[in-house]
Design a protein around this nucleic acid. Structure first.
Length: 420
DNA sequence: TCTGGGGTCCTAGGACCC
DNA sequence: TCTGGGGTCCTAGGACCC
């Protein structure tokens, strides 16, 4: 059997752990640039605030204090996620961390499913302060559905088990196709047009038809909903295939000299991610794009692939390559809204056999990068950076409602006033 | 005025090779 | 009217996930 543990309203819950005054109040977390809502507490959901709502539409609620809004604080969420996953792994030896707030895990057949799920909920929530729910079922896709029920209906007390056909069929009849894991917006609307409204309708379609319409991925979903497991736990983390760092700008930018520092920062960000994963880049691709919400303005998406002569994770080499490509692809007279750098080809230098043409590794460069990472780790990201990465220009994003780094910065650690 | 960021997988079609 | 067949690799685009 498969289990799925999912944190409830994860980002909003993280904001609440160290700020008990927020309990019972509607809390939302905003995307970068404080653009739109990306997480909501239960109270915010019941106010009818939809995912993706632009923040300006909530201006009145936020200003009046009826809703508390936060800029996204990914350092905090990342650290809380690590804690939650560690707690889960104390009870589930075989766990696959699927996203920042979810993990699948193996559930032994010999165990009492419901009590095992309850034990996990108690342990993880109790020690981390983050509420979690657990779904248990014979396939990952069904475990997702079980988890959904665990969250949605209080009577389950955060644990729902689908372990026989009656429960499975009943759950499928209550699940809209759009809520199935693996069925996105496009296919959901196509299916609806065909009269397929629930997951139960979906499993009654002929398998071949599903395959034709939705490729092997849809076919797997169909099998999984029928109780046949075909998506396994991924226990060893596969090597990354792509690394990307990108941001929208605080304001639109047209000038090449204003775009350069953004590309420098994103290239440096990619290099740091490569080093953190002990990987190297073989090629990269900076990109620029205009504001797609402004159809009145000329639109473009520019990108340029740059092969690197040898695998590297040296910030200076990667930045130089990205800037060279920027100069080549740049076109004036467009108002750019977003820039980024994608590492398009990644190699693992340990696993990879050195070939004849590989440059010998540069020990001094490795030491320098190691030192930069160590300083930034200790004193905060961006403490040491290239001078080309100016942070006082227009491209820097807005984060006006950021909570403290409660768990990762000694200066932000919580203070408790016990009185005299 | 204001609308996120970071990934994966599959398929079709073109280029190229023998 | 004739102008092979089969294979691999790469890329762009679509769809999905959180």
């Amino acid at each position: 059997m498969f289990g799925l543990m999912d944190c409830n309203n994860f980002y909003a819950s993280c904001e609440r752990v160290f700020n008990p005054a927020l309990r019972g109040r509607p809390v939302v977390v905003l995307s970068n640039n404080d653009g739109c809502v990306i997480a909501r507490s239960a109270e915010a959901k019941s106010l009818g605030i939809a995912m993706g709502t632009p923040a300006f539409q909530l201006r009145n609620l936020i200003d009046s204090g009826d809703v508390v809004a936060f800029s996204s604080n990914y350092r905090l969420y990342g650290d809380m996620s690590r804690r939650v996953m560690t707690l889960l792994q104390q009870l589930a030896a075989q766990a696959e961390i699927y996203s920042i707030d979810e993990a699948f895990f193996h559930v032994p057949d010999s165990i009492h499913y419901k009590s095992y799920g309850e034990q996990i909920v108690r342990h993880v929530s109790g020690a981390s302060g983050i509420p979690v729910s657990v779904g248990i079922a014979p396939t990952k896709t069904l475990a997702k559905i079980a988890n959904h029920f665990a969250k949605r209906y209080p009577a389950y007390h955060r644990v729902c088990v689908i372990d026989d056909d009656d429960k499975r069929i009943a759950a499928l009849k209550m699940t809209p196709v759009a809520d199935i894991w693996g069925v996105g917006r496009r296919h959901a609307s196509k299916l609806k047009n065909m009269g397929v409204h629930t997951a139960y309708d979906f499993i009654n379609l002929p398998r071949a038809q599903v395959r034709k319409m939705m490729t092997v991925i849809g076919e797997k979903t169909w099998c999984e909903l029928n109780g046949v497991a075909c998506i396994d736990l991924e226990l060893d983390t596969p090597d990354k295939k792509q690394i990307c760092t990108s941001r929208s700008f605080g304001q639109m930018v047209s000038d090449l000299d204003e775009l350069r520092p953004a590309i420098v920062a994103h290239a440096a960000g990619c290099a740091a991610k490569l080093r953190a994963n002990k990987l190297c880049a073989m090629s990269l691709m900076p990109f620029l794009c205009t504001n797609r919400f402004r159809p009145d303005l000329p639109q473009c998406y520019l990108s340029q692939m740059v092969p690197l002569s040898a695998p590297t994770n040296d910030t200076r080499v990667i930045v130089r390559a990205a800037l060279g490509a920027l100069d080549e692809m740049y076109r004036p007279k467009f108002l750019y809204k977003k820039a980024g750098v994608i590492i398009t080809e990644i190699v693992n230098p340990v696993r990879r056999q050195l070939d004849l043409f590989d440059a010998p590794t540069d020990a001094r460069a490795d030491k320098l990068m190691f030192a930069i990472d160590a300083v930034n780790q200790k004193f905060g990201r961006g403490t040491l950076r290239l001078s080309a990465e100016m942070t006082d220009s227009k491209w820097v994003m807005h984060r006006g409602m950021l909570s403290p780094q409660y768990t990762t910065d000694i200066n932000d650690i919580i203070e408790i006033n016990c009185g005299a």
